[in-house]
Design a protein around this nucleic acid. Structure first.
Length: 366
DNA sequence: AATTCGGGGCA
DNA sequence: TGCCCAGAATT
């Protein structure tokens, strides 16, 4: 059974796999650094989005050593817009650890890989198999979905029972595969191209006659997902604090702490509105006082921006402001600076702050 | 075991 | 709109 599935899958993959920039060598014989970067970018991110980021990244940081020597701001700038910024900070940090303690090479054991920031069970397995050719499973969301259908697993996909079952099945399949690395990639490719979350293309699937969910006609209700919570809505504020005359002088930006939302990126100072804030102006005065040690006067509104994160929806209210008293100090932020619209292009900002910059630019041009 | 952490693509 | 994506780290 396992041999049949492994052979069918491998043959299908040899014909149908997509061309991707990191697939420049057969699975099992790739540059470990390229595998690590591409797999990290691919975490919770569709490959179609990753391709351009990967190419830009490898052009600027072709080797692990060049990444280790880079400035964190430049690393984040290359990641700007891709999301989950701890991935970029951890790549940078781990590159420095590897140069310092591991001769600039990625380890060849799961135990050592798992100690490195940003490398979990999946990414460790992907590096071990796709780069080093070792018979290690690499279980991602695609593989879980494919297995839940092949064996019609009706436990919730995130339950311990389902996880154990899938790990066991993956291990058996891996042992039956002629090329374990190719099998891992084939499982993921099948999940991405045919065994999709919605509207799976069972007609074209090489495993159709082996698939229990298809036989029972329940492929559309596999995997069984956990119910999702409604995403809450929060109001945020941001201030354009002008150094001199509005629209015609530098304004203040702050770098966000490495831990937490959008860590390490620059943004306009501000905060989420709390229960103690009487209104948006009060929220803004409070947060700028707490985080920059600055008393400001909020003047006219700039714009309002909507943005949806994974776990909440944000309405961002931006205002113009001027300093009443004090000078900026890095209290609640690790850093701050005066900047201009032109200069801000070169710094890493998250999407909501890019939208504010666009509104500011539209203003000064009119 | 449950949360946190981005952003875009797509029905 | 909601769902999901080649997950990891934290609580």
């Amino acid at each position: 059974m396992y041999h049949l599935i492994a052979d069918l899958l491998t043959a299908w993959h040899a014909r149908q796999q997509r061309a991707l920039p990191w697939r420049d060598a057969p699975p099992g014989a790739r540059d470990p650094y390229s595998v690590w970067v591409s797999e990290t970018m691919a975490q919770q991110t569709q490959l179609a989005v990753v391709v351009d980021y990967f190419n830009r990244w490898m052009a600027r940081f072709p080797r692990l050593e060049s990444l280790a020597e880079a400035d964190q701001q430049e690393v984040l700038k290359l990641w700007e817009g891709l999301g989950y910024y701890s991935r970029a900070r951890n790549l940078h940090k781990t590159a420095q650890i590897l140069v310092r303690e591991h001769a600039g090479e990625l380890p060849r054991t799961r135990r050592e890989l798992l100690r490195l920031p940003g490398i979990g069970e999946y990414t460790a397995g992907a590096i071990l198999s796709l780069a080093y050719g070792l018979p290690e499973p690499a279980i991602d969301g695609n593989v879980r979905r494919v297995f839940s259908r092949l064996w019609d697993i009706d436990d919730r996909i995130d339950s311990p029972a389902a996880q154990k079952r899938i790990a066991s099945l993956a291990s058996n399949l891996e042992a039956a595969a002629p090329q374990p690395a190719a099998l891992n990639e084939a499982l993921m490719e099948l999940g991405a191209l045919l065994c999709r979350p919605r509207n799976p293309l069972c007609r074209d699937c090489p495993l159709q006659s082996s698939c229990m969910a298809h036989t029972r006609g329940v492929q559309d209700s596999r995997p069984v997902r956990a119910p999702r919570k409604r995403t809450p809505h929060y109001d945020f504020t941001a201030a354009v604090i002008w150094q001199g005359a509005p629209d015609n002088s530098p304004f203040l930006i702050a770098r966000r702490p490495d831990d937490g939302l959008l860590g390490g990126l620059w943004s306009l100072p501000g905060a989420r509105c709390g229960p103690d804030d009487e209104n948006l102006h009060a929220c803004l005065r409070r947060s700028v006082c707490q985080k920059l040690g600055l008393a400001i006067a909020v003047t006219e509104p700039l714009t309002t921006v909507e943005h949806t994160f994974t776990h909440f929806h944000m309405t961002l209210h931006a205002f113009h402001a001027r300093i009443c008293r004090g000078a900026p100090r890095a209290v609640g932020y690790p850093d701050w600076r005066w900047t201009t619209l032109a200069e801000a292009e070169l710094l890493p900002f998250a999407v909501p702050d890019r939208k504010l910059a666009d509104a500011l630019r539209a203003r000064t041009q009119s």
